[in-house]
Design a binder for these strands. Structure first.
Lengths: 305, 305
DNA sequence: GCTCATCATGCCGGAAAGGCATGGCGGTGC
DNA sequence: GCACCGCCATGCCTTTCCGGCATGATGAGC
């Protein structure tokens, strides 16, 4: 009986014989005796129902069908190796897709570097970055859309079902124009802010920012009045530089402001803004995700220096 | 020892288990006992070095790596089937490429029909047609560039190493304007042509045509003078219709000339122009080529009616 | 806690692949 | 033209490994 079905072994043998154009040459390369090879190729030809070789006493030549099948067999073997390699790479975290959420502003000092190094280290991982608001990031992780997020520590109900790993802390400061009286102080007491006007981000888009403000002024009798709400960092910078007021921001903005504004610490110092990795409590992180986290930690630790 | 290498069997088993999400469900479908399946999948996982299933007592689920590998395995099996099928199709003459040379003019009455029917019957065969001069066709077949050619019978040294199979014969006629005295005759004797002027195809491009002329006027004392050489059928038609002379052509042009010219047989009738299939004496014709020849014969035989 | 379903393991039988020896067949060289 | 050599095919035996049966281990459901 020859109810034998085609196996990859047949293809491996076939390619070897077709390349050597000889059974006896191919046999030792395959660590197999020539008669065994002979029979395997016969089985293959029986299975296909087509002669792939024309045998002669001087060796073998490929038939037209044999040439076609050689190409196909090579391709199949290549793809088989590739399939295994891809699967191993996925398990090693060197292949696949990564859905990552982030808040741009607080992560600007280390996320770009981490991402660049990650892509250089494992170029076969496709990283998709999602710039979302804080609660959207948290929801995305909970429902599995996002594997992890790089952002400030989630507060209150927003953090349910999530874990937070702090990578870096930014102290809370007051931003003032260079000629403002505060600029010459080493630190500014929160009480003194009552006499200033505040430039803030819009409450609508920046709820986390306003939560921060609430924490800073917690227990203060009179909060400073709001001079203007801004829709972003650049307009905030302009407003303050123009003297419309001062702003409460984290030290992460020091690079953004450059020499246009001065940052002074507050006394007593409010709780610092923590920035780090948020992931689901239960859902697993893929190996690629773990590698990305490691890269984030590395980039953030260099930042501390 | 588990020196087992991956075989298609592993992939077939894997896909079945992954689709059933159960060893015991998949086993009967594969006509295999469940323990055997179990072990084959274990071997596969060992070979890859990655867990593809997460086992539980209720069944199995795919890991992320398993999902990827399932896609890859399905694709591999599909391509393996395809490879075998393609090879079989090639052997049946239902797949591949066909390099075919032809002379357009003498084959116009059956080649287009044969080609159309062939493409309808075996659409997976890509037919490449080469419109070449007679000697180029013969050379192409001898050096293997062309598998066969559809053309007039090769004459003299041009036919060395080739076989010719006649499909249709066209008698040799004289083409005259409708008002020419010859038009009222039933046949024209070759001797009478001496008083006419000849419109001919250019010797440079139409060596076969001039060989035909030589045969027609073989043994004739005085050949008619050549009035003009034309570069194609349309200019030849125009010249004759304008009264510049008459032409010796095969009856295949009767459709081309329509009512603009009249064709009259010659007496004594010269050897007819045979049109058919030319192939190499030794080189094999592929199955697809044979199929094409059969289609040509079929189309040509209908022509005779 | 018992039962049931599911996957894993041990053991054995058999089919298929592999190895060795040999036969058949052309081509080469003397 | 004959002997020799190289190559592929075949016969026979051995080995390997896959498959089947029986059974164990484990967790879910009642």
């Amino acid at each position: 009986m020859m109810s034998c079905v085609m196996e990859l072994r047949h293809l491996r043998y076939y390619v070897a014989v077709a390349e050597a154009l000889s059974f006896s040459k191919a046999a030792p390369r395959l660590r197999v005796a020539q008669p065994a090879l002979s029979r395997q190729i016969q089985d293959l030809e029986d299975e296909i129902g087509v002669d792939l070789f024309t045998r002669s006493t001087r060796g073998v030549t490929l038939t037209a069908e044999g040439k076609l099948f050689l190409d196909e067999a090579r391709e199949l073997l290549r793809r088989a190796d590739e399939a295994v390699e891809k699967t191993r790479a996925l398990a090693r975290g060197e292949f696949g897709e990564l859905q990552i959420g982030y808040s741009p502003s607080p992560t600007v000092e280390f996320l770009p570097a981490a991402l660049g190094e990650f892509q250089k280290a494992v170029p076969r991982v496709l990283v998709r970055l999602y710039d979302l608001a804080g609660n959207e990031l948290a929801d995305g992780i909970r429902n599995g859309t996002l594997e992890l997020a790089v952002m400030q520590r989630p507060m209150g109900p927003n953090g349910a079902g999530l874990t937070f790993e702090s990578l870096h802390s930014y102290s809370i400061c007051v931003a003032v124009p260079p000629k403002h009286p505060f600029a010459s102080l080493r630190a500014v007491s929160i009480a003194k802010l009552a006499a200033e006007k505040l430039v803030v981000f819009r409450r609508r888009e920046y709820t986390d920012y306003h939560a921060l403000l609430d924490r800073v002024f917690q227990g203060v009798r009179q909060r400073p009045p709001i001079a203007v709400e801004c829709d972003g960092v650049s307009s905030l910078t302009t407003e303050i530089a123009a003297g419309r007021g001062v702003a409460i921001v984290s030290r992460v903005f020091s690079n953004t402001f450059g020499t246009r504004l001065k940052l002074r610490p507050l006394t007593p110092a409010p709780a610092a803004q923590e920035v780090g990795i948020v992931r689901s409590l239960k859902g697993d992180v893929t190996p690629a995700g773990e590698k990305f986290c490691a890269q984030l930690r590395s980039a953030a630790s260099r930042l501390a220096k």
